[in-house]
């Protein structure tokens, strides 16, 4: 706003009272009024994200424990211990990568397949969508309790079915070899959120592309192969990245159902971090673990973004 306009506004203010003053205020501060709108987010970002992140980074170089005001600076000791002394660190990372390596792709395939089905003209489509989405809003603790019974060796429904078809019982949660697969199966139950995103993506594919493909003689498979999947790759990328982030942070199911056992088979990264922070009160060490996890996730995400240039199709690119 020019000086002349401001002077004019002042003159108007002196003549016209509060309304004019408000108008003048708005005119003067239009430049930063947008910041006021983002202030709640900004304060939350500072207080709940940025400041904790920076503090966590600092604490990872200390021996911080609960209630200690001025922790000792220990340099890289926490990081050294993580990679050389902590016999459970490598195992927890391995368990987590195993879990993520199966649960993320399986989750995407499963959610995508259901989304494809729910995108067809079937009767009661809306009801089905709701039904399939419900597990995604069931609290993780409640879901864990339900699955504890589903996996029960003697009375669980899963083993009852397996016995019916002649496979026999599996010790889902008490045999080390089966505990991780059990939790991976359980993770598929919460596919609803991914499914909704896929559904939105599928509905955004222009119908004329399918018509053109049909004119060219494409059947169902070819339409899927050459139209649906390429146009869904940005959505797949999004779900993949979110899945990887979530996969690395898997915690609740293992915490409630197995507590990391049997034989540490489900000791995931976050559970090990939690144990260090709140059972051993080794907050400095846990902070260092959190920092490393941040960089692992960052690397995976960047890797996905970099490789996406080869397989993700953005219209017009």
């Amino acid at each position: 706003m020019s000086r002349r306009a401001l002077r004019k506004a002042d003159a108007v203010e002196s003549r016209a009272g509060p309304l004019a003053r408000l108008s003048q205020f708005k005119a003067r501060h239009r430049g930063w009024i947008g910041y006021v709108f983002i202030l709640p987010w900004l304060v939350s970002f500072l207080w709940f994200d940025l400041i904790p992140f920076v503090l966590n980074l600092y604490l990872s170089f200390t021996d911080y424990s609960v209630g200690v005001k001025w922790p000792n600076w220990v340099g890289l000791a926490n990081y050294t211990e993580m990679f050389t002394e902590d016999h459970l660190y490598g195992l927890s990372l391995k368990n987590t990568i195993y879990y993520m390596g199966f649960s993320v792709p399986l989750g995407i395939i499963f959610a995508f397949a259901i989304a494809l089905l729910l995108n067809t003209d079937i009767r009661g489509r809306t009801a089905y969508r709701t039904i399939y989405y419900i597990p995604a809003v069931v609290p993780a603790v409640a879901a864990s309790m339900i699955w504890l019974w589903i996996f029960h060796t003697r009375y669980g429904i899963l083993n009852q079915v397996l016995r019916l078809v002649g496979i026999g019982s599996i010790r889902w949660l008490t045999r080390p070899e089966w505990a991780k697969p059990a939790l991976i199966i359980m993770s598929l139950w919460g596919f609803g959120a991914q499914m909704v995103i896929f559904l939105a993506g599928l509905q955004g594919i222009p119908g004329e592309l399918y018509e053109a493909a049909e004119i060219d003689g494409a059947g169902h498979w070819h339409k899927m192969r050459y139209v649906t999947i390429p146009l869904m790759t940005p959505t797949i990328l999004f779900n993949l990245i979110m899945g990887i982030i979530g996969g690395f942070q898997v915690f609740t199911a293992a915490f409630i159902m197995t507590n990391g056992g049997p034989l540490n088979a489900t000791l995931f990264y976050m559970l090990h971090l939690y144990n260090n922070a709140f059972r051993y009160f080794r907050m400095g060490y846990a902070s260092a673990m959190a920092v490393v996890l941040f960089f692992i996730i960052l690397i995976f995400t960047l890797l996905m973004m970099r490789t996406s240039e080869r397989w993700v199709y953005y219209g017009g690119s």
């Binding site: 501060h29 930063w32 910041y35 304060v43 500072l46 207080w47």
Partner: peptide
Amino acid sequence: SQRMNRREFLRVSASVA
């Protein structure tokens, strides 16, 4: 003119927070 620049705004926001 009382125009606040971005840096000032962020400083004030951080102080408020």
